[in-house]
């Protein structure tokens, strides 16, 4: 086992374990912290696969910005009143069934299928090359994704304004 595969398996275990913890925690703040760990692991995995830029982006945007935003939201809306408890059995059962199906399919794919044995050559995508590739070959995708962000922004603004109007109206009713 080379150092490379050793690192890979180590990271895989960290990612899996922290994601499982994130899904099963009832305390939202704990869940988010575990998710941050999971994202850090994925970032390392990207780095290992030869995409340092993607790794940096993953840390900055996902682990850094988005998860911190999640934390703020959780702190603001005070959802932590529920006692910590496991999922009710009604929700557990379908999850377990689907999990088993997934596991069976995964095992089948890993062991039953010859697939492509040739491992992909290790390449390193420098930020420069990555940017050039995206803007030369996928410029349309960049433009369309910008619209996706735009519509998310407009939607959030529109629905978010509801809160202000509502609280203003409520304030009028009960001065």
């Amino acid at each position: 086992m080379t150092l490379y595969s050793l690192l890979f398996y180590l990271l895989a275990i960290i990612i899996l374990a922290s994601t499982v913890m994130a899904v099963t925690r009832r305390n939202l703040v704990h869940a988010i912290i575990y998710l941050v760990v999971s994202f850090f692991g994925s970032a390392m995995l990207f780095y290992l696969l030869g995409a340092p830029f993607l790794a940096a982006i993953e840390v900055i945007i996902y682990a850094g910005a988005i998860m911190i935003l999640f934390l703020f939201i959780v702190m603001m809306i005070d959802v932590d009143r529920h006692k910590e408890r496991l999922f009710p059995i009604r929700q557990c059962l379908p999850a377990i069934i689907f999990g088993l199906v997934y596991a069976a399919v995964g095992l089948m794919v890993t062991f039953g299928h010859s697939g492509s044995k040739a491992s992909m050559p290790i390449a390193v995508a420098t930020p420069n090359a990555f940017g050039r590739f995206v803007f030369e070959h996928h410029w349309l995708a960049v433009e369309i994704v910008s619209l996706l962000l735009l519509v998310a922004l407009i939607g959030a603004l529109y629905l978010g304004r509801l809160k202000i109007e509502k609280s203003a109206a409520a304030g009028k009713e009960t001065p």
Partner: peptide
């Protein structure tokens, strides 16, 4: 699909 879905739910 995502552009469509996100606009649709708004």
């Amino acid at each position: 699909l995502e552009i469509l879905s996100i606009s649709l739910f708004t």
